Simulated assay, not measured.
Amino acid sequence: LNTPTLIIVHQDVPGMIAKVTDSLSKHNINIAQMNVTRENAGEKAIMIIEIDSRDVDQALAKIRAIDNLHNVNFFG
């Protein structure tokens, strides 16, 4: 449906979801839907975040600077 979507692979450590969603909020990007899964506690996890905006360059720069992220992809 061509919904702007972030797919983020990260380490499953406390605060990861908060850091990513805080970056989106600070750039006035609304989350439409979000799903978080992990392999095992403390290992790799994946956030799939559907958002309401395609203007994400500044937010992506901040998100990519967060520690414990393995990969950040945006499909807009």
Rank of each mutant, 00 (worst) to 15 (best):
Ile48His: 02
Ser23Phe: 02
Val36Ile: 13
Ala32Glu: 15
Phe74Ser: 06
Phe75Pro: 00
Asn68Pro: 02
Met16Leu: 13
Thr3Gln: 14
Ile8Ala: 06
Asp12His: 06
Met16Glu: 12
His27Met: 01
Asn2Arg: 10
Asp12Met: 04
Val20Glu: 02
Ile7Tyr: 05
Ile17Phe: 02
Ala61Met: 11
Asn35Leu: 13
Ser23Asp: 07
Lys26Ser: 11
Asp67Cys: 05
Ala45Cys: 08
Thr37Arg: 06
Pro14Lys: 01
Ile51Gln: 03
Lys44Phe: 12
Val13Pro: 00
Ser25Arg: 11
Ala59Gly: 07
Ile48Arg: 15
Ile8His: 09
Asn40Phe: 13
Lys62Gly: 01
Pro14Phe: 06
Lys44Arg: 14
Asp67Lys: 14
Ser53Ala: 12
Ile49Cys: 04
Leu1Ala: 15
Asn40Ala: 15
Asn30Gln: 10
Ala65Arg: 09
Leu69Cys: 07
Asn71Met: 10
Leu60Tyr: 01
Ala59Cys: 10
Ile51Ser: 07
Glu43Lys: 14
Val9Ala: 09
Glu39Gly: 12
Asp57Lys: 13
Glu43Met: 14
Ile17Tyr: 06
Thr37Asp: 13
Val36Gln: 13
Ile29Asp: 06
Asp52Val: 01
Ser23Arg: 09
Lys19His: 11
Asp22Arg: 12
Met47Tyr: 09
Asp22Gln: 15
Asn40Thr: 15
Val72Leu: 08
Ala18Cys: 12
Phe75Gly: 08
Ile66Gly: 06
Ala65Asn: 13
Leu60Gln: 01
